[in-house]
């Protein structure tokens, strides 16, 4: 995540791994640049978005990472690639 290696227990979501590591936010909104992390935790609110392997708009609370996935914070609206 953001260049830092994470050992994530099998089945744990990206969001759970980040919160367990003490991170509260990892996204900024596109208009106000406001920080965001988990809100609903069950895939409804789309607040916790991250970029996974270059693909933005991935819900961290839903996505269980695979070994070697490269995850980073999402800043506003981003293009894939």
């Amino acid at each position: 995540m953001d260049g830092e290696p994470f050992d994530v227990p099998e089945g744990r979501t990206i969001a759970a791994a980040l919160i367990a590591a003490g991170r509260v936010s990892w996204r900024t909104t596109r208009a106000g640049g406001r920080p965001r992390g988990v809100f609903c935790g069950i895939g409804v609110c789309f607040d916790c978005l991250v970029v996974v392997n270059g693909v933005p708009d991935v819900r961290a609370c839903q996505r269980v990472p695979a070994d070697g996935d490269v995850v980073r914070s999402q800043r506003g609206a981003e293009l894939p690639g």
């Binding site: 744990r12 979501t13 969001a15 759970a16 919160i19 367990a20 509260v24 936010s25 406001r34 920080p35 965001r36 992390g37 988990v38 809100f39 609903c40 935790g41 069950i42 609110c45 609370c61």
Partner: peptide, 23 residues
């Protein structure tokens, strides 16, 4: 309510029960 650290009750429950993580 949009500050990080404000969660729904369901989020706290999912993280605690599903992953053993306290918010």
């Amino acid at each position: 309510w949009d500050l990080p650290g404000v969660y729904t009750a369901g989020a706290a429950q999912a993280l605690a029960k599903g992953h053993g993580v306290a918010v």
